[in-house]
Design a binder for these strands. Structure first.
Lengths: 333, 333
DNA sequence: CTGAAAGCGCTAACAG
DNA sequence: CTGTTAGCGCTTTCAG
């Protein structure tokens, strides 16, 4: 690894000049530039990023903290992030919190033990108070249903409206016993709460009374929990004629359970999910779902970060960005 | 952000002493230590990682370069990586190459424009020669079927044996027209080639002659290509009675196509995939598949990196690590 | 046990 | 247009 000084020595110029050639900032005499560039190319000069960061006070790194990478929704989102960050010449470091409060706290207070210029976090376990209290010292963007906290921006879709819409769609299809899968009383990230609120609101508007018998808890948002919840619902008594699952993974689990019991979808039970993950499109029948505009979630979050990193107007009030969503009606309901 | 010097000033000691307290390396008089620690805690001291990196010549960052994060197999693998890296106090920066030769080349020659201590890359587009030629200046571990190159270690499963085993399983089930989905003549990453080799070998051993009619190309390894390939196979003439797909995603696409045409799985067509992604377990019927030991892939790759980073014995020949796999027989075949 | 100081590689202010 | 140099924050050698 050669440094600017090595190059300077070989070219018989000062480091300043080499630096200028590399950065292209200040002007350099054409002859000098050419000579220096030749050496640069020859040795394959690579600037030392650590030195640059130290000097600039910036690392060019941004953190993305999500509960888990193996979940399709977050994997798709992370992919879009990495892509968008690349376009902005940022590199993404990924942390998995596993929905663990300690992990989330650690990230916020120490920015991951890693110097990042900004952090995008999808909090699951941390209470709003704790979120506000933490001060990572860098701009933070919150993803998800939690309202924007303190100085953090927030990017999310309108979950209440989306859930209402999904439920209404099932009701308009003539369904009357519409169940919900995905209640999570153990978490406080707002996701399940808001989706249930939307679900109940839709029922109410249709003159139906929400019933605890039709609402099933889910330990996680994964397929396995969907299987469990669906089975529980079916074991409770008269089967629902429709199910709104708070995530596509839960819906796919429910679909699996329904088929295992030889119930037909959508004839016997209509099914709507949430997230629009790739799997859902190729399930059989293809899953009707609420599709958040994921590309826009990633893009807007990066934009928030960029704004705060490059124009550190300290008093700027926190932004609450609502991205659009669409109900994709496919075969399942 | 306070530095060691700030702390030293406030504590009336030298930076040396504060550094010792922080690192715990050298011994410090108990009284001094306590006093310094109190100030450290009070201001919430965070060491500047850029400075540390510059000094140490290491960044604590490792790169993971994969074709795409939104593909379940790579997402699961990435999750395991991030987790294993965390245990080793490394942070993972993720790059997506999209199977693009330029992107792969850029990563190898410039280590992603980012200073990483090591790189794990799953090459798709780059030819062996190009792989060998590149010199990233840091240890590299190759993932996948490509044989180990030059100084790079390699971690992979025995794809030929695995494909043979999957195909043999179908043949032992009494199937005679066993098709293969996933041939990729446009790529040269070895994956498709090796799986086809194993497939043909199994056919040969059973006294069957491989037929081009039963081998279908796949533009990608995604569900969509699986749908297309399966339809093509069915349109060609007499339907196969079994299909070995080179990835679970392809298999799920094939499953979708089969069901759309009202063919029963496994009664009419038995189906085996490759990768053991989560989706496959909840497909209906659940997908029989070759399960690579993903945890071990991640773990061994990290271990290779650690060995080379911490014991830079320069001449150590490149390692070729073969991780185990299992055939998981489920409902589809 | 602790202080002083060098130096990692880079950028930019200051001279010339 | 280009050279010299300070300094980003840390670790570590050398003294004391």
């Amino acid at each position: 690894m050669s440094s600017l000084r090595d190059i300077a020595l070989r070219a018989g110029v000062s480091v300043r000049t080499v630096s200028n050639v590399v950065s292209g900032a200040a002007s350099v005499a054409p002859a000098t530039r050419q000579r220096v560039q030749a050496i640069l190319d020859e040795v394959g000069y690579q600037p030392n990023l650590a030195a640059r960061s130290l000097r600039a006070g910036r690392t060019g790194l941004i953190g993305l903290a999500i509960p888990e990478l193996h979940s399709p929704y977050f994997a798709e989102l992370a992919g879009l992030f990495v892509e968008g960050a690349r376009r902005r010449s940022w590199t993404v470091v990924i942390d998995q919190t596993s929905g663990d409060a300690d992990a989330e706290r650690r990230l916020l207070t120490r920015t991951g033990g890693r110097a990042v210029d900004g952090l995008v976090i999808s909090p699951w376990a941390l209470s709003p108070a704790e979120l506000t209290a933490a001060d990572p010292g860098v701009p933070v963007v919150l993803l998800g249903e939690r309202p924007p906290q303190g100085l953090y921006d927030r990017v999310a879709l309108d979950s209440v409206a989306a859930a209402d819409q999904a439920t209404t769609h099932l009701l308009e299809g003539g369904r009357r016993r519409v169940a919900a899968i995905g209640v999570q009383s153990h978490l406080h990230n707002g996701t399940a709460e808001q989706r249930r609120t939307g679900y109940r609101r839709a029922l109410g508007r249709a003159g139906l009374r929400p019933s605890p018998d039709l609402e099933a808890e889910a330990a996680s948002l994964h397929r396995e929990s969907g299987v469990r919840a669906m089975n529980e619902l079916l074991d409770r008594g008269p089967a629902p004629d429709a199910v709104f699952a708070f995530s596509d993974e839960l819906a796919l689990g429910a679909l699996y359970a329904l088929r295992t019991r030889s119930l037909r979808v959508p004839e016997d039970v209509a099914l709507v999910g949430f997230d629009d993950i790739e799997d859902g499109r190729y399930a059989f029948p293809p899953l009707t779902t609420v599709a958040p505009d994921k590309a826009q979630i990633a893009e807007r979050a990066l934009q928030c970060l960029a704004d705060r990193i490059y124009s550190p107007g300290d008093g700027v009030p926190s932004l609450d960005v609502v991205v659009p969503h669409r109900l994709l009606v496919r075969g399942s309901g």
